[in-house]
Design a protein around this nucleic acid. Structure first.
Lengths: 163, 163
DNA sequence: ACCAAATACTTGACGCTACAAGTATTAGCC
DNA sequence: GGCTAATACTTGTAGCGTCAAGTATTTGGT
């Protein structure tokens, strides 16, 4: 336990603003999706990952990795999505321990219907207030932070993580 | 419902990275604080706000605003903190409808003890991987996003929002 | 071939947050 | 002054995420 290096005024200001965005952004996305599509952001994200996977199918473990969820959480969420007919479970033929989550036709319809409103919200809240240079800076900075938070780049820059 | 303006490749990359940080950062802060201090990030933040307020006291409504919480959520959290002896409730003398949340001596001790570890985590995950120019860019970009998410700047740049 | 360990989930219980409804007090209006 | 509306919370309920434990299947020795 060495001496604490406190934040400078500039660092503190940037940090406070980042943390404010981290607190506020999820709620904004959540509200819009819930209101317009009846989906939580995590549900939307899960369906989106499946929609881009080969055969619209992923093993639970792979899906959990891409959505940054625990297997337990994903299992509960997939159960709910299954009850609503948006996803279907299949036992994996190659490895009977494993479960494949498959996007149903209804699930595809739901995610396709939800996407435009979601993208519009993303544009309004994040992208459109920024200049092209800002976007480049944001990309660079978030990349540096992710090198620490997610060194193996499991969540981003892996296949099938489009939003 | 006009045509959707989809994200360009650059925008999409920056967005995906931002959302990854938004998903991963809270968990990182949460784990460290819980492990080292037995506090959730929200509890820590609540105590920190109180610690910087005059008389270490704030009305519930004001505290809720600064922590970006609903009154209901804050009420539950303060109840728990009260049970642990970190916060005390007082009826406001001027307005008997209102409740003041007051940081106790034990609460002060807890937040002071938790701060160094928290700041170290913030440094390691966010500040230190960035150059000074990055920090300035981050500050500017988050400011622009906050103009949309929090137009009245209630959460940031209001008094008593240091972290 | 067999058995222990590892893997891939699933399930149940508990804690936290949002939402809805309720209580107490104050402010505004006539 | 008295009545209504607004304010400032508090409390109960339901839903979602986490953690711990359990089940089923496969892998890796021996």
């Amino acid at each position: 336990m060495t001496d604490t290096r406190w934040l400078t005024a500039d660092e503190l200001r940037a940090w406070k603003r980042l943390i404010a965005v981290v607190e506020l952004l999820p709620g904004t996305l959540e509200s819009q999706l819930q209101r317009d599509s009846g989906l939580s952001h995590f549900e939307y994200f899960t369906l989106a990952m499946l929609s881009e996977a080969p055969d619209r199918t992923l093993r639970m473990t792979a899906l959990a990795t891409h959505t940054n969820a625990t297997l337990a959480r994903l299992s509960h969420v997939v159960s709910r999505l299954e009850k609503r007919g948006l996803v279907r479970r299949e036992v994996c033929a190659q490895d009977r321990r494993a479960t494949n989550a498959v996007l149903t036709a209804a699930g595809w319809t739901a995610v396709v219907a939800a996407a435009p409103g979601h993208v519009r919200t993303v544009r309004e809240t994040v992208i459109d207030p920024l200049t092209a240079a800002d976007v480049a800076d944001l990309d660079r900075i978030m990349g540096r932070i992710l090198d620490v938070l997610d060194p193996t780049h499991v969540m981003v820059d892996a296949p099938g993580t489009d939003d």
